[in-house]
Nucleic acid binder design. Structure first.
Length: 654
RNA sequence: GCCGAAAUAGCUCAGUUGGCCAGAGCAGCUGAUUUGUAAUCAGCGGGUCGGGGGUUCGAAUCCCUCUUUCGGCUCCA
């Protein structure tokens, strides 16, 4: 036992993650526990989890507890590491730019940021180096992070003296007796912790970028400067991270979209209005055909509706009141006072189809699908490749059903979403249940009872289907709660793909009805759903997911045939025709180039297979096959090669 | 929409502190070559240096402004 423990005689039980229990003197710290296990561990402990709460490893433990010592290998360890780094960055900035006021400075998924107010001065990239150097200098001082409890008044006095209105605002919302400060070197920050024991762990730092960020996320308040940074315990970790970032950038769908000629934009057409090139169109059409087939099997019917609708339609739906002024503005007609809008969503049109004739409970559920193109005037700063555009096509459908059918229909939609994710090998998705903000009910249309019912239905279905989901309060649409499926792009940004939304509101506004088996009129429930979300965003995420190497069933071309010289062009044409009989999409590279050049170009184009034909192949009526990214696969016949391709496709679709 | 950065040939990028008709590689075109598993050789064409305005003897380079793009923020029916 460590000597400092000797004079202490009250012992507490500490349960380690392997459920072994050790006894320590009351007041023991995480660091001391680590030291009692091994010195190596003690050198690496960044924080400690005590009965579920993450704390400083230097804080004393006063009662029996279950603990976990956290290192760089734990998410929580990294979080503490980066949180402390944010403090050190603030300390560096305060030294370099005295008078800077600090807002909040949390750790994030990769690194940390601090929101700062430098008054008139602007922080620029030219300042990064100085900040980085100062951070390293401060880190090397092995500054301890000292936690101090302070009264609310004490905190107010301190930050009044500093003239920091941001911290004062935060303090005002805190409860007296729960306020803590952390001191490191000359820097004192209002902070709940936890922090790593000292700054010496921080060995590598990179200031990544600066950006504007509204104080407290409120567009009506002052915009502060947000400084992003990341730190590591080893220089090599930083270099690896930067390499990883570079690699990720190569997967950017905007880059690959240009390289593989999938889509483009033109200022002359308009911002955020994608132009689908032939190869991109081929992929999109195949996705569409795939989903149509799945939906046909699931009992959907396809409909088609116009790209515009009378303004009154959106007044009925309520969308005009909510989004009218931020939309593409209404189109006037020769008739005075008559106005149409580019449709920003398909639901009102589908409601009118529902109303085409009286509906019986026997007609329900009615699953009405349309690949409907809609136009939304997104803010200019929001546009982003294919993931955020102003004109896009939703793989939309609206399910009209009885309240009793909601749950089953929800399950049916989830099944479709899972079918798609599986066919495209999307494993890394998260589900998000978006509920309304109970403190802000005026933001939403519809009555309490319906909201509660809808929210409960989603929660139940998700639970019963064993889908891991996070619940987000306040993220619901204005007309109802929803379940979204989120995936990440190459750079880790989250995008919503599939969505399922319960709507008790539109049926009300459109006065939709069905006759029940009691011969009475009833109100149907509407479920909006789009498993892809939009074709644009889905293709974008798909491109980044596979880095342009599309699954065989989607690839614009399966094969490129490479004749060794002009002499074998005829044989190449024969092969191409034969492959066509087996539904294999091929093209022939007849350029006057060497085989090596043609192979290189085909590899860069990410064409899944190459067939090289020359004298030998023509004589033997064979094909030399090369797989993209793999290499030479040897000799095949047209039949055996076709079987290989078609088997591979079949396997993916199972 | 807000904050910041950037914009040079179809693409990727050079172009020192303002100074000869603005450069390279790839792509394109022409010709030679007739090729065996990731780049054959030669020649040629191509740019109002994002648009506009200004400073200057002189601007891709400095200043203003607009547009677009990128990174964030906000928003996302």
């Amino acid at each position: 036992m460590h000597p400092i423990f000797l004079n202490i005689n009250i012992m507490i039980n500490i349960t380690l993650p392997d459920n072994s229990v050790r006894q320590y003197p009351e007041g023991v710290t995480g660091l001391e526990i680590a030291l009692s296990i091994s010195e190596g561990l003690a050198r690496n402990v960044l924080a400690i989890q005590v009965n579920g709460e993450i704390r400083d490893a230097t804080r004393q433990i006063h009662a029996d507890a279950k603990i976990r010592l956290l290192t760089w290998n734990d998410i929580e360890g990294k979080a503490a590491f980066w949180h402390t780094s944010a403090h050190i960055m603030a300390e560096a900035i305060e030294i370099l730019f005295p008078g800077t006021k600090f807002g909040i400075g949390p750790n994030i998924e990769s690194g940390f940021y601090y929101d700062i107010d430098m008054g008139e001065r602007m922080l620029t990239e030219a300042d990064f180096k100085a900040i980085e150097d100062k951070i390293i200098e401060l880190s090397r001082q092995n500054q301890l992070l000292v936690r101090k409890e302070i009264s609310k008044q004490g905190a107010i006095d301190l930050f009044t003296k500093k003239g920091n209105e941001y911290k004062l605002e935060l303090i005002n919302e805190l409860t007296d007796g729960e306020i803590t400060l952390y001191e490191s070197g000359q820097f004192t920050d209002l902070c709940r912790g936890p922090h790593i024991p000292n700054t010496g762990f921080i060995k590598a730092v990179k200031i990544m970028s600066v950006a504007g960020a509204y104080w407290r996320g409120d567009i009506n308040r002052k915009q502060l400067t947000r400084v992003y940074g990341i730190t590591f315990p080893k220089q090599k970790d930083l270099l690896d991270y930067l390499v990883l970032l570079e690699e990720a950038k190569k997967r950017d769908h905007r880059k690959i979209g240009r390289e593989l000629e999938l889509f483009t934009f033109s200022e002359n057409v308009g911002l955020g209005l994608p132009l689908w090139l032939p190869k991109g169109t081929a992929i999109r059409e195949r996705l569409e055909a795939f989903l149509k087939k799945v939906q046909r099997n699931a009992g959907y019917v396809q409909v088609m509706t116009p790209h515009i609708g009378n303004v009154n339609l959106y007044k009925t739906s309520g969308h005009f009141q909510k989004y009218g002024k931020d939309s593409f503005q209404p189109i006037n007609t020769p008739i005075e006072g008559e106005q149409f809008m580019l449709k920003p969503m398909n639901c009102p049109h589908h409601c009118e189809i529902y109303k085409f004739k009286p509906r019986s409970y026997k007609d329900l559920p009615l699953r009405m699908a349309e690949f409907g193109t809609v136009y939304r005037y997104e803010q200019s700063g929001e546009l982003h490749g294919l993931t955020r555009v102003r004109g896009f096509t939703q793989d939309d459908a609206h399910i009209f059903c009885t309240p009793d059918q909601v749950k089953d229909e929800f399950v049916g939609v989830i099944t479709i979403v899972m079918t798609i994710f599986k066919a495209l090998d999307f494993k890394d998705f998260t589900a998000q249940i978006s509920l309304r903000d109970p403190n802000n009910k005026e933001k939403y249309i519809g009555n309490d009872e319906n909201w509660d019912k809808a929210e409960q239905a989603i929660i139940d279905v998700v639970k019963e289907n064993d889908i891991h989901a996070v619940i987000e309060i306040g993220e619901a649409a204005f007309y109802g709660p929803k379940l979204d499926f989120m995936v990440r792009d190459a750079l880790g940004r989250k995008w919503q793909l599939g969505t399922i939304q319960v709507d008790y509101n539109l049926p009300e506004r459109f006065d939709l009805e069905y006759i029940g088996n009691d011969n009475q009129k009833h109100r149907p429930v509407m479920i909006h759903r789009a498993p892809f979300g939009s074709m644009e965003r889905f293709v974008a995420v798909l491109i980044e997911h596979c880095a342009g190497k599309f699954p065989l069933w989607l690839a614009p071309e399966h094969v490129t045939i490479l004749p060794i010289s002009e002499k074998f062009e005829n044989y190449a044409k024969n092969v191409s025709q034969l492959l066509n009989n087996y539904d294999i999409r091929s093209k022939i590279d007849i350029r006057n180039e060497t085989a090596g050049k043609k192979i290189r170009d085909a590899e860069l184009e990410r064409i899944p297979y190459m067939i090289i034909v020359g004298e030998k192949e023509e004589a033997q009526e064979s094909l030399s096959v090369r797989k993209q990214g793999i290499g030479d696969m040897g000799s095949f016949t047209v039949e055996s090669f076709s079987a290989l391709i078609n088997d591979e496709i079949k396997k993916m679709m199972e």
